[in-house]
Amino acid sequence: MSALLKVENLTASYGELQVLRDMSFEVEQGGVTTLLGANGAGKTTTLRAICGMVRRSGRIVLDGQDISRRATEDIVRLGVAHVPDGRGTFTTLTTEENLHLGAMARPNNKAEIEADIQKCFEFFPRLKERRNQQAGTLSGGEQQMLAIARALMLRPKLMLLDEPSFGLAPLITRQIFDILADLTKETGTSMLVVEQNASLALELADHAYLIETGSIVMSGSSAAVREDESVRASYLGY
């Protein structure tokens, strides 16, 4: 398999504070890659740097195209869907309006967009029940489903998922990860998942990178990373 996303020597900072240092990693076409790390390791910033939402330097190549100097809107238009941390629900708009917003970067073909919304409803029947409800009144799990469905509305090449387990009960988290596994299988969408829940993320991903204070300290297949003694001790807890 070839690499869909290639990140080389990525550096990013918030003002004076440098958060990422010389990070290099890849996301394979059709595969799921996960970035693991503790709080403040730089996982969220990595995703924001790929989308052009923070100041960054280094090379970011998507499908052969250098996107390291592109604006966020252009990167989204190239097919990178970002599920931001904290889900990023448009709280006062309805579920359906949220889904429409996911297709903002696509050409305004009403029939196609409507058909994709129906697809999303097939995948997430709960969202169909709630289609005319204000999205801010959905439960945490439903809002996470909405965030994923909204990202799908872009018909993305690559989905960036920022902590899909954020603030969810273990059972719901498990459900969300099962859905993500089904999604990659059915749609072939490549994913880069940032997670604190290492065991769930390693189950979903084929490939894993471990970040500590803004640098990658370990990488390998999920199976290999799971077997590693130090990862087990500090991230898996057994």
Binding site: T72, E73, F90
Partner: peptide
Amino acid sequence: DNPIAARSMGIS
């Protein structure tokens, strides 16, 4: 509603 998420949708 959410300026950061709006950027993520590709809204300028």
